[in-house]
Write a protein that binds this DNA or RNA. Structure first.
Lengths: 238, 238
DNA sequence: GTCGCTATTGAACACGCGATCAACGAGTGA
DNA sequence: TCACTCGTTGATCGCGTGTTCAATAGCGAC
């Protein structure tokens, strides 16, 4: 906890320092109460200055929100990614990562993310930042997986699509948890989710049968014939 | 398109009819512009009456939002679930369902969902409704899957956790699509996602073996042994 | 000690929000 | 034709929002 600037704001700081304290205040405010709480007056109160001063340093609130968003999620990503332990196997690492991200104590960041998707649809400055941050998440995960594969070629996982699925699952579950909707045993579901992502065949040679059916035997039915349908279905649906 | 009540509102409707027209207007407004657009004045303008009249029929906006949310998502769920075709196999049906839900044309409903998770965290009336609607989605999917299993016992899928994963994945991807963040080939990812959910072993007997590297070779591999592993990892981690 | 630069303030504007309430007037039964 | 009912209106309150700007006052330089 290096909580900066509760309210005490000695007058006349050097601009860069004031700017920093305002950003810090906005970040802590948004972390606690979400991006929607970022009003000129609320930030000013948090920092201990006049609304006019906040407006002076960040004349356009819309882009300030985008900036605060970036600061918050980038910090979280750095922290979470840094906790990856290369001496441990991929599965355990990812499980740990998922459980970290889904932990209730991170609902504040989850709220920021969910609001960013809603607000980002109409705030173009924010939308751009959101895509950037998600790209960074995706490539970070992709890197982690690719690196693990490099060390253990026995791993049959497609880094790209696995990263997509992991992000979708985690983000979906995070969003759900905001309204406290979660399975009885979330840890178990996390495990199962990871299994789903890691233990599924990688469609290595993109043959032009609309594949997705695996070889044969196990578990599911799905002959090529069948699995060809969905692709078609998709087109007819659109 | 059965768009009701653009603006023309003949004076003095019977209460039930007016109530209906206000709800309809609010639903269409929220569908177009999201739950955040549901203000007394905006709804009044849409329906073609005075703000005071809207406030008269729905004195508390907060719960009106919850009501509109329910109306919108329930209608969508009914529609999508009804499109399930029992004469086709489960995989194709689910793929079709996923692609329907992820279609760009449904971004409006996606926006309603995403906003509902954010707003529902602090609007308790809404939060309750959101959980209810998600429960209904979960059990609807669970039913679909269970029914498919009943007809084809060769299917090795756990309806409960599969439903959880499907919802998380679809909701996550829907949220992402609001800011136009999507893989190059979304249809392929949808197929892969479905594979992940359907083609993963159900962890029936959680035995307590230790190792963590997977067996090696085969792609979907996944013996029960494997699927038991993560369970332990989770415990050690926490 | 004084001056000047500028960080900071206070006040105001124009807008949108939910909510309230007395008053209007269309429809209806007498 | 009158009177009553009640759906509907217009006006208003109190509040919160982003944004603007002239005026103030702290701080470093001289």
């Amino acid at each position: 906890m290096k909580t900066t600037s509760r309210a005490a704001a000695p007058r006349r700081l050097p601009p860069e320092e004031r700017e920093r304290s305002i950003l810090d205040g906005a970040v802590s405010l948004a972390s606690e109460s979400g991006l929607e709480a970022l009003t000129v007056r609320a930030v000013a109160a948090r920092v201990g200055v006049t609304p006019a001063l906040v407006a002076h340093y960040r004349p356009v609130m819309e882009s300030f929100v985008a900036e605060v968003f970036t600061t918050i999620v980038a910090a979280e990503r750095d922290e979470v990614i840094a906790s990856y332990d290369p001496t441990i196997d991929l599965r355990t690492n990812l499980l740990c990562l998922i459980e970290t991200l889904l932990d209730d104590s991170r609902d504040d960041v989850a709220m920021v993310w969910v609001q960013s998707w809603a607000l980002g649809a109409r705030n173009e400055a924010l939308g751009t930042r959101v895509r950037t941050e998600m790209d960074l998440w995706h490539s970070a995960l992709e890197d982690l997986i690719a690196r693990a594969i490099a060390e253990d070629p026995a791993l049959r996982v497609d880094p790209d699509s696995s990263a997509w699925m992991l992000l979708a699952m985690v983000d979906g579950m995070s969003a759900h948890s905001l309204v406290h909707w979660a399975p009885r045993d979330r840890a178990a579901l996390a495990r199962r989710t990871l299994s789903a992502v890691l233990d599924v065949p990688v469609p290595d040679a993109p043959r032009r049968t609309a594949q997705s059916a695996q070889p044969t035997e196990p578990v599911q039915s799905a002959q090529p014939v069948q699995s060809a349908q969905p692709a078609q279905a998709a087109e007819t649906l659109r």
